[in-house]
Amino acid sequence: MFTGIVEHMGVVIDYKDYDASKSGGGGISVMIGESAQVLSDCHIGDSIAVNGICLTVTEYGPSWFKVGVSPETIRRTNVASWVPGSKVNLERAVGQDVRFGGHYVQGHVDTTAKIVSCTPEDNSLVFGFQLRDKEYENYIVEKGFICIDGTSLTITNVDSNGTFYISMIKHTQECVVMPLKKVGDLVNIEVDLTGKIIEKQVFAQLEQQLNSETSPLSKLISKLIDAKLAKTST
């Protein structure tokens, strides 16, 4: 679990499509450098969020660490766009002594979004985004939480076409990678888990109610149908 409060910006120093080493496991691996700030208590198998993606440390040194990347992660995220020199947001998994300054973040990226605008507003930057996968628009709500490239942010506005906006203060601009990106670049998106849980519970309850003829909902629907039929026959 993470908070979406970025601890440090690291740099991609190596990206292998096939890593035959023991720590690479015969798959895709990425090595992140300039990362000493998040490695003081590191162990093999630890989770570190890299641009919001929960990844497992398979090898590390004083200022670098390696992670494996699954094909599912490649499909869901912007990892394929990383090249040596790319800066990435880093956050260690929360411990008992961590203040919860952001919001509940799993590090399980849902989809990507394209940056469609970046507008200065006083000393803040207002970014606009459009989701790649429209089904996640249901979870994008004004003043709700969203995690963008591992950064916990508040949605300030949502247009009728699905474009949503965040406002980034000066301090955050200096601590995360987004201001280094340009319009057209992709960012990783994790929507607020709360919305997904509520949706699943509502649909499960509705399905249970509809499948039972004696449930309050089924009785109400039958009553409404009978009333409609009675009105139509008169």
Rank of each mutant, 00 (worst) to 15 (best):
G52N: 10
E91N: 02
D122S: 15
S81A: 11
G61W: 09
W82T: 05
V88H: 13
D110L: 04
N123F: 13
A49E: 08
A20C: 04
G27D: 11
S117K: 03
H108V: 09
G102F: 05
L55Q: 03
T112D: 07
H108F: 12
G85N: 06
S63R: 03
G107I: 03
S81Q: 12
V6S: 01
V67L: 14
Y18L: 15
L90N: 11
T56Y: 11
V105A: 04
F65Y: 11
N123D: 14
S117H: 00
K66G: 03
G24S: 06
P84T: 09
V116Y: 09
D19G: 07
S70H: 03
V50M: 07
L90S: 00
I74G: 06
S40E: 14
S47P: 01
V109D: 08
A36R: 12
G101K: 03
I5L: 11
N123G: 08
G68F: 08
I44H: 13
H43E: 13
S70C: 06
V94D: 00
G107L: 02
E34D: 13
E59F: 08
R76D: 06
L39G: 03
D122N: 15
G4T: 01
G95M: 08
G24T: 04
G10N: 05
Y60G: 05
C118W: 11
E121K: 04
A93R: 01
V105P: 00
G27T: 05
S86A: 14
I115T: 01
S63Y: 02
S29M: 10
A36P: 01
V79I: 13
Y60C: 10
V11N: 08
A49K: 06
M9F: 00
N89I: 00
T119G: 02
V30T: 02
A80C: 08
N89T: 00
I53S: 10
S124C: 12
K66L: 13
G10E: 05
D17R: 12
V6Y: 03
K16C: 04
G102I: 01
T3D: 04
A93N: 09
A80E: 14
G27L: 07
D17N: 10
F127I: 00
I32T: 03
P120G: 06
D19E: 08
G10C: 07
D19F: 10
T77S: 14
N89E: 02
R75M: 11
E34V: 05
P84Y: 10
A93K: 00
K66S: 10
K22Y: 05
V67I: 07
V30R: 08
K22D: 11
E91Y: 01
D110G: 01
